[in-house]
Design a protein around this nucleic acid. Structure first.
Lengths: 225, 225
DNA sequence: TCAAAAGTGTTAGATTTACACCCATGA
DNA sequence: TCATGGGTGTAAATCTAACACTTTTGA
């Protein structure tokens, strides 16, 4: 094969998903054991190949749907990972995406069928190829995004307590915040609505449940946490 | 061709460069007329294909080098652009990168040889395919980055006046800032060093020239503008 | 001599942070 | 009755934003 042709060879294009969930006051991602060579048996992100009749974004959404049965999920591109030897077999360039889902919305049986597990982001085992790099970048991007856009709610149930919301932000940002100051800021955002419902699972006294009002946010999108 | 094979077809992978420059108090990018089909003659970013023996990042650097003869340029990935029909001919997925260069370092003759021009980011003509999307995202990312990392200096000569630096930030951020407040913040950053040199091209009185000290920044990387 | 850009401090207002106690309830 | 998490306000400190005049010099 001449250099000329070598230069214009096509490549395999895949997508890999960093699927974030929040449970037990921990930020977690879904990983599983690879069931194909090379790297069979290693811990890995869930991914798939980009088909010829779909955009890269669509491929990511399809892949997530295959795994979780969920649609309309918040997904954002992390970037392209394209080192020559990142896949030991073929030349494969992968586009990573991160997704935010509510752990409770993902059927445990479905999860087990696909052989994936929720793993604390702090305790990720060695991952296949450059997947840890993808996770690191996804985490950084998500952390930046969650400060200025109301995407944290994607990781919580529709109804949540302020303590849940606070723990989420503390976990993602890696530092504790003052309860009163946190609630003060929440009160200023009218699109975080207090309901009359009370959650008694977290405490004896019970805590008011809140919800994120997408419509109200659209009218006055001033989010900052 | 069966659906099975269709799913695993390879794709062409290209890189496209959004090359930022700062001149005449305007943020500009390099674009040229496409000299291949499809889209021959349309305004376009400069790009190239990813070779089999180089990483995607390397392909971007090589492409920039081909165009400018410059190495060790600040480049960051913008993301993958992968709509099915983005290239009218083949299935081509492109990874966009933005680069920051000092306009004065780019030989005008070399620029003309390649048929590219500096165009004010505010006055970009219609671009080929999804290139305008790439530019928009690149601009957004660069704008975010320049606030917290000392990359603006890449767009200026080694020696620059504080007015030049201020104009750069005003242009990128799209809003004017108070001269005294700006200079106050600069004074707090010890890695922006005042020299004894004076630039007389911008005013009769002359202005002190400053330089960015990379080494000093590494020791105390507290940048914020 | 004057136009044009360089250079320089202070103050009010806004934002952020620190901090401690009472409440309601189930066990 | 007591342990546990829920809920609330104020004051000091910090940061941000607004603002105007003098200097230098080439034309």
């Amino acid at each position: 094969m001449t250099t000329f042709y070598q230069e214009f060879q096509k490549v395999f294009l895949s997508v890999d998903c960093i699927i974030f969930g929040f449970d037990d006051n921990k930020l977690k991602i879904l990983i599983g054991r690879r069931n194909l060579d090379p790297g069979r048996g290693e811990w890995s992100l869930y991914g798939g190949f980009v088909r010829h009749n779909e955009s890269v974004d669509d491929a990511a959404h399809r892949t997530l749907y295959e795994l979780t049965g969920m649609r309309n999920i918040y997904m954002r591109q992390v970037g392209a990972f394209g080192k020559v030897d990142r896949d030991p077999g073929e030349r494969v360039v992968s586009i990573a995406y991160y997704a935010l889902i509510n752990v409770k919305d993902y059927e445990d049986t479905l999860r087990e069928e696909h052989g994936v597990e929720w793993v604390d982001i702090q305790k990720i085992p060695h991952l296949y190829s450059d997947h840890q790099e993808m996770v690191n970048k996804a985490r950084r991007l998500m952390k930046e995004k969650i400060r200025t856009e109301p995407i944290g709610f994607r990781l919580l149930p529709n109804l949540f307590t302020l303590t849940q919301l606070q723990r989420l932000y503390e976990t993602v940002n890696g530092e504790e915040v003052d309860k009163r100051n946190f609630r003060k800021r929440i009160k200023e955002m009218d699109f975080i609505e207090k309901t009359e419902l009370i959650d008694k699972t977290g405490s004896k006294r019970g805590a008011f449940l809140y919800r994120f009002n997408r419509r109200a946010y659209a009218e006055d999108p001033n989010f900052k946490l």
